[in-house]
Each structure stands twice: as C-alpha cells, then as structure tokens.
Amino acid sequence: MNDMTTIAKTTPKDWETDQEVRWCPGCGDYAILKAVQRTMPELGVSPEKTVFVSGIGCSSRFPYYMETYGFHTIHGRACAVATGVKLANPELDVWIITGDGDALSIGGNHTMHLLRRNLNCQLLLFNNEIYGLTKGQYSPTSQVGTKSPSTPFGSVDRPATPCAFAMGAGARFIARAIDTNKNLPTVLKAAHAHQGAAFVEIFQNCIVYNDDVFAPFTEKANAGPHQLWLENGKPMLFDGGKKGIALDRKELHLKTVDVVDGDWEAAGVIVHDVKNRSVAHMLIDLRLVDGFPIALGVIFDDPRPTYDSAVIAQNIEVSKGKTPDLQSLLAKGQTWTVEKDNTVFG
C-alpha cells in the first residue's frame, strides 16, 4: 500500500465531487456514498491514487460522485476493466462498484474470475434484489415469487446468494453490511486492509422498485433478533447478547442458543474466527427462518498472494538478465544473408 507519511490528510469533503447526485430521493445509495466518503480519509490514501470502476446500473453511477479517478464502464464489465487498470498500475487503489444484476447476471463470469485470481481491490456489490435502472425487473438475487414487470405472476427461479457465490469462486475476503447501518465504515476499512480481492455485499434498499425487501432484518425493531454482527475473536452473539450461535455437533449445522446471564461459554456459543472457511460457509447460508439471524460484518478474511503481485513478480523474474533489443529479436531464428552478387549465407 501507499506510504502513509507522504499522504496529505483529507476530510470527507475532499472526496466529494461537484456533480449533482442523481439517485431517487431516499435511495440507499446515498447512505453508502456518505459512508464511503467518510471512510476514505481514515484509510491513509490519496484521491489521485484512487480509482473507482463501475459497470452499469444505479450503483454504477457512483464514480461520478467520488473526487477520485473514475471509470463508468459498460454493463457487467467493471471487474474486467479494473483488472487491466490494476495490472497496468498496481500502485493504484482500485474500488469496484457493482450491483446484483451487473455482478451476478451479465457480469457473473468476470466477478468469478476476479475473485478466483485474487486481484488486489475492493468490490462493493450493492444488492437490492431488483433491476432499478431498467425500471424494476426481477434480478438474480430476487426472492422466489418477486412480482415485477417481467414476472407479473411472480418469479419462479431460485436466487443466487452473493457471498456463497464469492466463496465458491475462491474469494479470500467476504463481508456483509447494510446501507444505512453504522457498521458499514468498519466493514469498508477491513475490506481495504485486506490484501487481495475484498468482496463486500451491501444490502441496499431500492425505495422505488423493491422497498423494504430487507426490512425483516434491517428495520429497527427487527435488528436485534435478526442481525448477527460478527467480530473476529468475539462470540457470535445477537439480540443484545441474549442469543448466540452454536454448533450442533450431531447434525453438523449451526443452531441458535439462549445465553443466560451473559454466560455464552456455557451456552456453547462459537467464537468467530475469520480464517475458518467451513464456519464461514455455514454463516453465509443462514436464512431468516427458525429464529436465525442474518450474518453480517467480516465473515471470512484469510489473505493469499494477490494476482497482480504474482504477475508483476513473474514479469520481473523472467526478464532478469535479458536486455530488450528489438533489432536482435527481429533477427532471431534461422536467418540468411544475401550478398550483392546474390550469394546466400545461411
């Protein structure tokens, strides 16, 4: 990363552009934008060394509102463009802004390969379970039965789980947050601190086409019993510490347990270990049924060498001791010389 001593201190204002923000009033994107602009000064990075790359969709307008370098690309291709940016200049701090349609439908292939390769970047997936910009069609994360202009009788296909997709693709950092939740900056900071592809799913409310779809766990009244905020090294407690997550050793799945008098150890509550891949799988799969909460915060964080560093290292390694000499490259292989009298020397 950048040498923090040389970077001038910034304020959230320094990360705001003069562009008029054009999301619908009340859109969750406003909260995410504010959270990002509030987080940037705390990361010790400079605006000119930062690039926001997006695809197409409501979320993908994001780069226009960040006072950094930015590239609003085409539908689904943000990950591919970002890969070229990072490989061409690994010094840049690359953020990818995408949505559920952009990253998991039209651009699913690029998302998979970016995570598999482990490009050093932050990928923020704004999941609103709907296509907003095209006026409300159901998306690959919409719940079964979603009524939309293209599914007037309700959608019949099962949705993808973004974090499970990321896990399957080999992501080494997987986190979840909520647009308006105060924990979003903490998650963003952790994503930035992670060396490698950091995948963050942000539940974002689309006030026009899918309002309150996450209300069962984001509404104030539901937050306690249905939000499990994970912290590395801390017990998995929710509902004000009255409940916890434990392992059903017989059935090998997670279960909820009651915590009496704060004695979570007695209740068998698991301590969160961000490097535990198996538990991460189970946490991602928790649904709002049978009293389970939604797992939020940093679910998995276990860095591996990044793709960009490996590419650069190999470029340097195999170039060692070689002097680029175009003239001799052109004359490589079997050549022959023709003299003035047309005699040939092989």
Binding site: G84, A88, H110
Partner: peptide, 9 residues
C-alpha cells in the same frame, strides 16, 4: 475490457 482498463491506466 482489461486492455481498455490498461489504456486508461
């Protein structure tokens, strides 16, 4: 797309 990203960079 990656080539375009590289040109941008």
């Amino acid at each position: 797309a990656s080539a375009i990203g590289a040109s941008y960079a």
